[in-house]
Amino acid sequence: MDSLPRADGIDLKAHIRSVPDFPKPGILFYDISTLLRDADAWQIAIARMTRALTPRRPELLAGIESRGFLLAAPLASRLGLGFTMIRKPGKLPGPTVGLDYELEYGSDRLEIQQDAVRPGQRVVVLDDLLATGGTMAAAISLLQQVGAEVVSAAVTIELNFLGGRDKLGVPVDALVSYDE
């Protein structure tokens, strides 16, 4: 699904600020802080994502540090599910499992607690943005490594023109999408 339906008549793109040349020249940054601070728009965003995820029948939601937490935590509460965190190295206590991965501008690492997922548990992984798909693909791979059945990914914003969903191998739900 390219972007979730707007039966309620609210255009969520109108609540997302575009910031040119941030964090560096040539980058157009989509700032969700303007969506988060508008109570009505934020409630509608969570309601839309709840409708999209319900048919996927998740048993657990996983959020990618840090803005993925902003979407995953309230959705988990609304859906009556647990929530687990996928974080940068050294941020989680106890035994962890990690995955190093390559990005277009270097490499990075994600970690999850070793016991965060039961084998075969149906998980949806969430983040604020899907661009080239490197981080989301790594998160999906990491969840599978610890035994999860990743049933879908969900994001606040998808940049369709970068083709990130093609790297994921799971369905993707996006609140809003941009084609250029």
Score class of each variant (00 low, 15 high):
Met136Gln: 05
Ile86Trp: 12
Arg6Ala: 08
Glu59Phe: 08
Arg122Met: 14
Gly164Leu: 04
Pro95Cys: 11
Glu59Ala: 03
Gln144His: 10
Leu81Val: 06
Glu149Cys: 06
Gly26Asn: 11
Met85Asp: 03
Gln145Pro: 06
Ile86Ala: 09
Ser107Leu: 13
Gly163Val: 02
Pro119Lys: 03
Gly80Pro: 15
Thr132Ser: 08
Pro93His: 14
Thr96Ile: 04
Leu35Pro: 13
Arg165Gly: 11
Ser107Tyr: 03
Pro89Asp: 10
Ala137Trp: 14
Pro5Tyr: 05
Ile10Leu: 12
Pro95His: 15
Gly80Lys: 08
Val146Cys: 05
Pro20His: 07
Ile32Leu: 11
Pro74Cys: 14
Met1Ala: 06
Gln43Trp: 10
Lys24Asp: 14
Gln113Ala: 15
Leu61Met: 13
Ala39Tyr: 09
Gly80Ser: 10
Leu110Phe: 01
Gly134Tyr: 10
Gln144Ala: 08
Glu180His: 07
Thr54Tyr: 12
Val146Glu: 02
Tyr178Gly: 01
Ala138Tyr: 00
Arg109Glu: 06
Leu36His: 09
Glu59Thr: 05
Gln144Asp: 05
His15Thr: 15
Val170Trp: 00
Phe83Ala: 15
Leu28Asn: 12
Asp179Cys: 09
Lys88His: 09
Pro93Gln: 11
Ile112Lys: 00
Ala138Leu: 00
Tyr105Met: 03
Gly163Pro: 02
Ile46Tyr: 10
Ala137Cys: 08
Ile16Leu: 05
Gly106Gln: 01
Phe29Arg: 04
Leu36Tyr: 09
Leu35Thr: 03
Arg51Ser: 15
Val170Thr: 02
Gly90Met: 06
Thr96Glu: 10
Arg51Met: 11
Glu111Gln: 12
Thr54Asn: 11
Glu104Gln: 11
Val117Gln: 00
Val155Trp: 10
Leu129Asn: 11
Pro5Lys: 06
Glu149Trp: 15
Met49Asp: 00
Leu110His: 00
Pro95Trp: 07
Gly94Met: 09
Ala138Thr: 01
Gln43Arg: 11
Gly164Asn: 15
Ile10Asn: 09
Leu162Ala: 01
Ile140Ser: 01
Leu36Met: 13
Gln113Val: 13
Leu60Lys: 00
Arg78Ala: 09
Asp40Arg: 08
Leu79Ile: 01
Ser177Lys: 12
Phe69Trp: 10
Met85Phe: 11
Arg67Leu: 11
Ser66Thr: 12
Val146Tyr: 07
Pro74Glu: 13
Val125Ser: 08
Gly63Thr: 06
Ala154Ser: 13
Met136Ile: 05
Arg118Trp: 11
Leu70Met: 08
Val97Asp: 00
Glu59Arg: 01
Thr135Met: 12
Glu158Gly: 13
Arg67Pro: 08
Glu149His: 15
Gln144Ser: 14
Ile16Tyr: 05
Pro58Arg: 09
Leu129Pro: 02
Gly82Met: 01
Ser177Ile: 12
Leu79Ala: 09
Glu65Pro: 02
Pro119Trp: 08
Leu162Ile: 04
Pro58Glu: 04
Val125Cys: 13
Leu4Ala: 12
Gln145Thr: 03
Leu75Gly: 12
Trp42Asn: 00
Asp166Phe: 15
Ala39Phe: 10
Arg6Cys: 09
Gln121Leu: 04
Leu81Arg: 05
Phe69Ala: 01
Gly98Ile: 00
Thr34Ser: 04
Ala139Asn: 07
Ala139Tyr: 13
Gln144Asn: 06
Gly169Lys: 02
Gly133Ser: 03
Val155His: 06
Phe83Trp: 05
Val97Ser: 01
Lys88Thr: 10
Leu12Ala: 03
Ala7Lys: 15
